[in-house]
Design a protein around this nucleic acid. Structure first.
Length: 337
DNA sequence: CAACCGACCTGTTCGC
DNA sequence: TGCGAACAGGTCGGTT
């Protein structure tokens, strides 16, 4: 699932491939992959323009065009971007292809069709306005956690007055940009903070550790080209951060700190991994969290959860290998090089 | 502001 | 062995 490090990697890999290229046409096989769902409008906005840069804002890949216009691409869960010759074979999952004058094209491949491509502009502050989030409810993105401006002081000012639970809060893109399920679980485990802790109950030392962990883990993940789990891959290949994850996807394995099994429960519909020994809720917050903790009990039919054992480990390894093979096939078919 | 729900999608995994 | 249900999860709009 592409989060900040994965999206950053895709944007960087695309740079040498698309900067300087002029857009000649756009091929659309699934119009709803465009935020406007209007291929003609999209063509009108981009054809004839030249890509002058690539970047990232929150989890959006941003293609800077000449003029002040940008193309925004949200990969959601299964979106992938590759640059290939327009004549290269492709599989049925390519939803949009942006063709360049030199005969290559940028292909957006997205099995689940959740991803969206939009048009936006730079406002006076340099931030983006346009097809980013929803038309009305969009409150703008929060600060970028890896920006130099995101200091501990800035983080404290941001979190002051917030009373929500920690995990949904740090995943709220209007609060902080770019953090998703994987890196939220990792940062909370690293700081020994329970995902259901209230932001209002944090001590100054907790805030300092959480701020530090977010920056350290996201930086390491960028350096490692992100975590290649399931469908995530980039034009220059898979990342390796999945090898460094301490709790995400490690249900039933021993906590690297205390050896007790990593547990998984559901928070707001999302799988949440934690060590319930290292990440304890203070007594004062426990009562309010009890209804939500029900998910901690293994659910009927969740045999692999907490089960562990050599058989489960072997099966998980086989699943990972199969996913790696699928990613390689995607690069070859929709593919790069 | 906080929390929750359903919708969006399709491939994979799991239980029976 | 085959089938259908559950699962994966990031928004986004709507409701409480």
């Amino acid at each position: 699932m592409p989060e900040l490090p994965e999206v950053e990697t895709v944007a960087r890999d695309l740079r040498p491939r698309v900067v300087g290229s002029r857009i000649a046409g756009v091929r659309v096989t699934w119009p709803r992959s465009l935020r406007s769902a209007d291929p003609e409008a999209f063509r009108g906005a981009v054809v004839g323009r030249t890509v002058v840069g690539t970047g990232r804002r929150a989890k959006l890949v941003v293609l800077e065009l000449d003029g002040d216009r940008v193309i925004t691409i949200h990969l959601k869960m299964t979106g992938q971007l590759f640059v290939v010759a327009a004549s290269a074979p492709e599989d049925p999952y390519v939803r949009v292809a942006i063709g360049f004058e030199d005969g290559r094209e940028l292909r957006f491949r997205d099995i689940r069709k959740f991803g969206r491509i939009g048009i936006a502009e730079r406002d006076a502050t340099g931030d983006l306005r346009g097809e980013l989030g929803g038309a009305k409810g969009f409150r703008g993105f929060g600060p970028e956690p890896l920006d130099a401006a995101f200091t501990l002081t800035a983080f404290r000012a941001l979190i002051r007055g917030r009373r929500g639970r920690l995990k949904p809060l740090i995943m709220d893109q209007a609060f902080l940009a770019g953090v998703g399920n994987i890196y939220a679980d990792e940062a909370l485990w690293a700081t020994r903070l329970h995902p259901l802790r209230s932001a209002a109950g944090l001590r100054p030392a907790d805030e300092r550790r959480l701020h530090g962990a977010l920056r350290r883990i996201l930086s390491e993940a960028v350096a490692r080209r992100g975590a290649s789990i399931d469908d995530y891959t980039a034009p220059d290949g898979d990342g390796s951060m999945q090898e460094q994850l301490q709790v995400y996807g490690r249900t039933g394995e021993p906590c690297p700190r205390c050896g007790r099994p990593i547990r998984r429960f559901f928070l707001g519909g999302r799988g949440t991994h934690l060590c319930s020994w290292c990440q304890r809720l203070p007594a004062a917050e426990r009562a309010a969290a009890v209804p939500l903790l029900r998910g901690l009990r293994p659910r009927p039919g969740a045999a692999t959860d907490g089960g562990g054992g050599p058989e489960a480990t072997r099966r998980a390894a086989a699943t990972r290998r199969a996913a790696a093979t699928r990613r390689a096939a995607a690069r070859a078919v929709a593919g790069s090089h």
